[in-house]
């Protein structure tokens, strides 16, 4: 059977709270990254605070409705990002949030590769019927990446985000199980 945790450029890993906190300290200093990630005010917190937070998440464990992975490059084992899946179990839908914190790895296919692993995991391991995500209109790089991974733009909440003195739209994307299966070109999943 295929290795679910290994892509073309990256692999999925589990990291200790210490490792995760240490790298998050660097990523959070990049305010552009923070603004791509979500709509919360960009904020920096201490390594201790981050470690406690990751420890708490660790204690809560994973599944059946929450799955978190870190992303490392295959070439140098560099820790470059993470993604989380939240599953609505009854309706068989997963929401994904992904972040590539290392900006040296932006725009080079690492995020797309990780998202493809994420979709394979969601559709063939969690067996969900759809995967959804949201992003902001000021992140066209992410939009292109999600489209490449197979997501379709499904909707737009106009002017619900204010960043740098301007109103921006939230974009909503989704991919259905049938669409993902059709993309696999008859390859055994």
């Amino acid at each position: 059977m295929r290795d679910l945790f290994r892509g073309e450029l990256v692999r999925l890993t589990a990291e200790d709270p210490e490792t995760r906190a240490k790298i998050e300290v660097h990523w959070q200093r990049d305010s552009e990254y923070r603004r791509f990630l979500d709509t919360e005010p960009a904020m920096v917190v201490s390594e201790k605070w981050l470690k406690d937070w990751f420890e708490k998440r660790n204690e809560e464990g994973y599944g059946p409705n929450r799955y978190v992975f870190s992303i490392r490059t295959l070439a140098e084992e560099r820790l470059i990002g993470f993604f989380s899946l939240w599953v609505d179990l009854v309706h068989s839908e997963a929401w994904v949030g992904i972040g590539i914190g290392e900006r040296a790895f932006w725009g080079k296919g690492y995020g797309t590769d990780a998202m493809r692993l994420c979709l394979r995991y969601a559709f063939t391991e969690l067996n969900v019927q759809r995967v959804s995500l949201g992003l902001m209109d000021y992140n066209p790089r992410a939009l292109r990446s999600y489209e490449k991974a197979g997501f379709r733009l499904e909707g737009r909440t106009r002017g619900d985000v204010q960043r740098a003195g301007k109103r921006h739209d939230s974009l909503w994307m989704g991919i259905l199980r049938e669409e993902w299966l059709a993309m696999q070109n008859g390859e055994k999943v």
Binding site: L89, S92, E125, L126, N127
Partner: peptide
């Protein structure tokens, strides 16, 4: 009791 969600 749902003991396996991926199998439902």
């Amino acid at each position: 009791y749902v003991y396996n969600w991926s199998a439902r």
